[in-house]
Amino acid sequence: MAQVPGRSWREVMDTSHKADVPEGLWMRCPACEAMLYRKNVEVNLWVCTEPACQHHYRVSAQQRVEQMCDPGSFEPMWLDVSPTDPLKFVDLKAYKDRLKAEAGKVTQPDAILAGTGYVKGRRVTLACLDPNFMMGSMGSVVGEVLTRAIEHAHDSDLPMITVACSGGARMQESALSLMQMAKTSAALARFDDDGGLFISVLADPTTGGVTASWAMLGDVILAEPKALIGFAGPRVIANTVKQELPEGFQRSEFLLDKGFVDRVVHRKDLRSEIARIIDYAGK
């Protein structure tokens, strides 16, 4: 069962059942539908244990930093930066209430966890998005914490590593979210001016305003296998062009083929790949 069945945009963006890692002793892989022993998947960095499948589960920012860093080396920063509701946004539910409901699902105040850590002995500044908090969307807090992380990497002469996993800019903060794209990109310009190394890792999904800003500005861009990566969502595109989307459209391998990512890297190899690139390009 090597083939990952195509998923609709709604399925991809639906966080209710996918982003949370399922409970119970056994679990069914959403890609190959094999029954998997939960413990084995966990040890396998939340990658399907079927050799032919290797579906990469979405993981929380906390799990991600633990996977990326040498054991116990990650030190979180900027945990006191927390979201507000600047526009008093109300759709079917008030943003204020959404924030409260989402807060219980994660260990940090918003959709980003950042700090310093070691990757195979190399010190880095690391920022990871969390799909469990409003689909990893970028509002003021994500933009601010990421910018601080970039500035920290800059000031400390450290490589900057990000792991993107996001539905895009957060609608509930409207233009304030939009401007986080400019803010983070501007911070990366300064970092770039002074020769800082930025490695951007793209996980499933990386879309919208996150792709169209910092996530695509890596000196080196790595992508996990079969991650959805794009600007517009597949459903929007399908509605616009009124034709079937090509096989594997907007997946990591597609972007590799089109020249927009440097390497597609299995989760188990991310640490060694990052360490290797730091040794070539880091200060």
Binding site: A182, S185, R190, S213, M216, F231, I237, V241, K258, G259
Partner: peptide, 26 residues
């Protein structure tokens, strides 16, 4: 908004916009 199409994605709509943000800032 920027065009949401197959060609636009193939040719890196996100990368093109991201680069403009970074370069305009400096």
């Amino acid at each position: 908004g920027a065009y949401p199409g197959i060609g636009a994605e193939e040719r890196g709509q996100a990368e093109a916009i991201a680069l403009n943000l970074r370069e305009m800032s400096r």
